[in-house]
Each structure stands twice: as structure tokens, then as C-alpha cells.
Design a protein around this nucleic acid. Structure first.
Lengths: 133, 133
DNA sequence: CGGAATCCGATCTGATACTG
DNA sequence: CAGTATCAGATCGGATTCCG
């Protein structure tokens, strides 16, 4: 329904791969996946484990990962509620790569910080016509 | 106005690592990095190589990667302009991991597509009170 | 505890037009 | 060729409130 023949990019394989990369490449997803590891974790565990994530973003992220078949969500009908999250077999195949990526980011914080400072100086400098204080 | 000492998260290491993950985890960055590989490529080559990227997003992505010290940008002062992009040594250390991630996404398009269909059905089904057509 | 729903400013992004 | 500038629409994401 709706659009007859316009923009069916949505079904284009390359477009789907991009969407998937968007999901797993998301900073929150990366942390959630690497934090889950081989274990089963509860919502609050993840919230504590992923520094700085809001409840909303954790919920949204987990929903997305669940929908894509990367994590499983198990609800126990008790009060107070208890929900367990874990990686699916497919999700586990991501673990090593994601772990490497997260580790890379953490290892290169200083390098990148330096590169940024250098770049910013170069740029502000390039933009200034002639003088320097 | 308001917050005097609140939210200096900006300098917090964990926050910086997240920001870096946000950059390299970005779908466009991932494609650009893996496409660059060991080579030097021109702007237009990248534009053609990264399916579906707009000129604007390619520019923005490359600027970010340059600022973070992941790619180099070489401008030749000729007409018409010529600009070469390549990975820095630091950028090259990402290549294997990023390549794996991109390959993973492409390999799992079908699986994830299936998982999504299943999830969507389960959900729409769960939300409906009782009846089914 | 683990959400869902809503509000709303901030950010992102594509389209378009212009340029050296 | 390789951008920059601008603008409007879409999306993101935090804060808040309410719920079983």
C-alpha cells in the first residue's frame, strides 16, 4: 500500500546490511553485547554495567537487539518483575568482534584525544586570516 | 545557566570511549574504513563505493574520521580539485575488526530479516486481545 | 523491578543550490 | 571534482510520570 514503485530501497540487500550495521554499530548496542558475554543478565545489571545509559535507551536498545535475534528476553511473571537477557547463538558469534572493537576504543582514547586537539588547532589556525595572538 | 558543577561527564574516560565507539560504529564510518583498506581513494571513489551515501554524509563522515586521526586527507591544489583519503597507521589497526563486522552484517541479512518478521508477528499477535482473522 | 507513554529540545540528514 | 551553506523534515534521547 502507499507508494507504488518509489523508493523500494528498503528491500535492497545493501540497504538491509546498512541497517543491521546501524543497529550493532550503535555505541549502546556494542556495550550491551560485550557486557552480556556468555552470561544471563537482568535489566538492572545491564543498567549498572553500561555506564551512562538511560533507562529509556537501554530498553530501546534491548528491544532492537531482541527483534534482530541477537538477544533473548525472558520474563518471569513475579512481583517485582524479573527479566533476563542473554545473547542468542547468533549474538554470540558477534562477541569476539564486538569485544575487540570496544577494547580498541578504550585503548585509543588518548591517541584520539590528541588527534582531535591537533586537528582543532590546525583548523582554527587555518581559518584565521593571518594574525595570531 | 542552571547547573554549576553538574554533568562534567564530558571529560570522563568512559564517556570518551563511548564517543569514539559512536564514531567508528557509525554505519557509514564502518563502510568507509573497510572500503579504504590499504589503498588511497579519492572522494568520488568512496562515494561510488559506499552504496547509498549522500555527498553530505560522506563529507561529514570523512571529516570526523580525519579529526580522530583515523584517515588522512591530502588535497592537491589543482583544477579540478583532487583529494585523496587513506587510513592512518592507527586506522589500519581497525581494518580487520571492522571488516569482520561488515562481513557479519552482510552474512546475516537473511537471518535477521527472518528474526524481525518473527518478532513482529509475535508482537502484533500479543497486542491483539483475543481474535485472529 | 522493569518497563510504557509522553513531552520536547537537540541532533541528524537529505535535498538543493552555489563555488573555486 | 570536491566540497560549503542552508533549510526543513525526521529522528534521537533525556526527563518525567505512571503502572503491574
Amino acid at each position: 500500500m502507499g507508494s507504488p514503485a518509489a523508493s523500494d530501497d528498503g528491500n535492497f540487500p545493501a540497504c538491509q546490511a546498512r541497517e543491521i550495521l546501524g543497529r550493532i554499530g550503535d555505541k549502546w548496542s556494542l556495550y550491551v553485547i560485550s557486557l552480556l558475554g556468555e552470561d544471563t543478565k537482568r535489566f538492572t545489571d545491564l543498567k549498572r554495567g553500561v555506564e551512562g545509559i538511560s533507562q529509556r535507551m537501554l530498553t530501546v536498545t534491548l528491544r532492537g537487539l531482541e527483534r534482530d535475534g541477537i538477544v533473548t528476553r525472558t520474563v518471569y511473571p513475579v512481583m517485582p518483575p524479573r527479566v533476563d537477557y542473554a545473547l542468542t547463538p547468533m549474538g554470540r558469534t558477534l562477541l569476539e568482534t564486538v569485544g575487540t572493537l570496544v577494547a580498541w576504543a578504550e585503548e585509543h582514547v588518548a591517541d584520539i584525544d590528541g588527534a582531535r586537539a591537533e586537528y582543532d588547532e590546525r583548523e582554527s589556525y587555518a581559518l584565521r586570516p593571518l594574525s595570531s595572538p
